[in-house]
Design a protein around this nucleic acid. Sequence first.
DNA 1: CTCAGTGTTCAGTG
DNA 2: TCACTGAACACTGA
Length: 279
Amino acid sequence: MPELPEVEAARVIAQRVAAGRRIVAAHCTEDPIVFEGVSAARFTRALKGCRVTAVRRRGKHLWLELDRRPWPTFHFGMAGGFHSTAMRGVRLVSHGSVDRFADWPPRFTKLRLTFEDGGELVMTDGRRLGRIRLREDPLREPPISLLGWDALHELPPPARFRAALRERTAPIKAVLLDQGFAAGVGNWIADEVLYQARIAPGRRAHTLTPAEADRLRARIRSVMKTAVGARSDSDGFPRTWLFHHRWGKNADARTARGERIRHTTVGGRTTAWVPGVQR
DNA sequence: CTCAGTGTTCAGTG
DNA sequence: TCACTGAACACTGA
């Protein structure tokens, strides 16, 4: 579920329910996989009584800034997300929908924070590939310190972007998925960006022409911006996007323009692309 | 029952 | 040494 746009949506939700407020209770599920290197007891101790000063994001990682360190950091893996309730009975979910009737706390809750005003922030993860950690200074410590440019805010100027591609020999799709390159790009966004830039996913990165590299950079930006601005996945995405037609691996899948979509594996991941358009 | 999956890590390879 | 590759991880839902 979570690529950069959904993580950004989760950040906004958390900012809304948590920023400026004191944590009065922190309930952790005992889960040594998701809580990496921290016991539930220590995690609770670190958070309880703290005031949240801000909610930050870099790539697909999130963290809460507190008035006391260490700070909690979050990664959603394949299936994690934030849910919040800010009184009123309305629930905000990081994958865009709003629901009033779901169970509370939701299924697969790993962490539940209650704030002084009664609002709650929950992290769920049904697949346990997500991680919750404690860090003294998240930006300066792994894994966040190892990330490349944030794909939404930090793409370098075209010349430097081209130079970075020249140093990589892997398929361009694999490079896009490398979080040490552009942080926040995931499987469907990599495919979307390559389709819009008209570049085949299997092309070796260093073989891209300057014009292709420039198109790629521009599309990373525009896809990220549009997806972050949309209310949720799919809803609000332009009809011409590959996104709407890439799922399901149908043999006769086509884009809105009628182009035939092919599904192959590149960089170890299912890849949807249009051989007729991408070279 | 089997398989794919919006992600990351790690061992093995060249 | 290091970039790259594919399997492994853990679990749900189709």
